[in-house]
Structure formats: structure tokens, C-alpha cells
Simulated assay, not measured.
Amino acid sequence: MDSAHEQTDVEFAHEEYLNHLMRCRGCYAPTQRFCCVGLALRIEYDALYLLSIEDNRQRRALLVRETHVNPWLAEALKTRVVELYNLAQGEAQEVGNIAA
């Protein structure tokens, strides 16, 4: 990796998720089997990835696909996306208040 490249939140979350999968005996991604930590890392990575997509239709299509594949995971993912979105909006408002 280029030392001048600063990792994005999505890249960092992806790296954490993969590192966990490689050493956890309770997680096996191909069969959607995760320990509690692995599941939380998967949801965090997926949510950050979805928020990084600019195209709303593409984001919605990915969520619909996840709903068909894993309905229980899709609900947790939707909840986390909303939480992260609201957090980002709150931070943007704080920056606006500081600048004013």
C-alpha cells in the first residue's frame, strides 16, 4: 500500500472485517456464519460502504438484494446506515454552527 494513501473509513472497516474473519474460528463468511464480533464488523463495513455510494438507486438495489439473501441482516444493516447518516448530519450541523 502506498504510504501517501490515507485509508478511508470504508477501507479501514473492510480491513478490520477481513482480519477478524481470517483468525476467528466461529466465523465462516461463505455460509453467513458469524460470531457476535464478526457480525458487528460485517454490518459496520457494509453500512459504511453503502453510505459511500453516491447513486441512491444503486444503494437501494444493494439493500434489496441483501433483504432477499439475509432478511435479518438487512434490517440490522438498515438500522446502522440510518444511525451513521444521522451521526454525519449532526457533525455537519456542528461544523456549520462553529463556522457561523
Rank of each mutant, 00 (worst) to 15 (best):
H68C: 10
L18H: 09
E6V: 15
L21K: 00
N56T: 06
E66W: 08
V81K: 02
G38W: 02
Y17Q: 06
C36A: 12
T8R: 06
A13Q: 05
L18R: 12
L73Q: 13
T8Y: 04
R25F: 01
Y17D: 02
I43G: 06
E16P: 00
R33T: 09
L62M: 14
L51F: 01
Q58F: 01
S3L: 09
E91M: 13
T79C: 03
G96S: 14
T31R: 08
I43P: 07
I98H: 06
L39A: 06
L50I: 07
V10H: 05
R33D: 02
Q93T: 09
L21C: 04
R42T: 03
N56W: 00
V10M: 05
A76G: 15
V95S: 10
C27A: 08
A88R: 15
L48T: 01
F34W: 14
V69Q: 11
L51H: 01
E6C: 10
A100C: 06
Q32L: 08
R59L: 04
R42C: 07
S3G: 00
T8L: 03
V10D: 08
T31M: 05
T79Y: 08
C24H: 04
H14F: 13
R42F: 12
V82F: 10
M22R: 10
V10R: 11
A100R: 13
I98N: 02
R80A: 03
D46G: 01
N70M: 10
N70P: 00
Q32A: 12
R42Q: 07
R25W: 03
T79L: 12
L18W: 09
S52C: 04
V81E: 03
A40V: 03
V81A: 06
I53G: 03
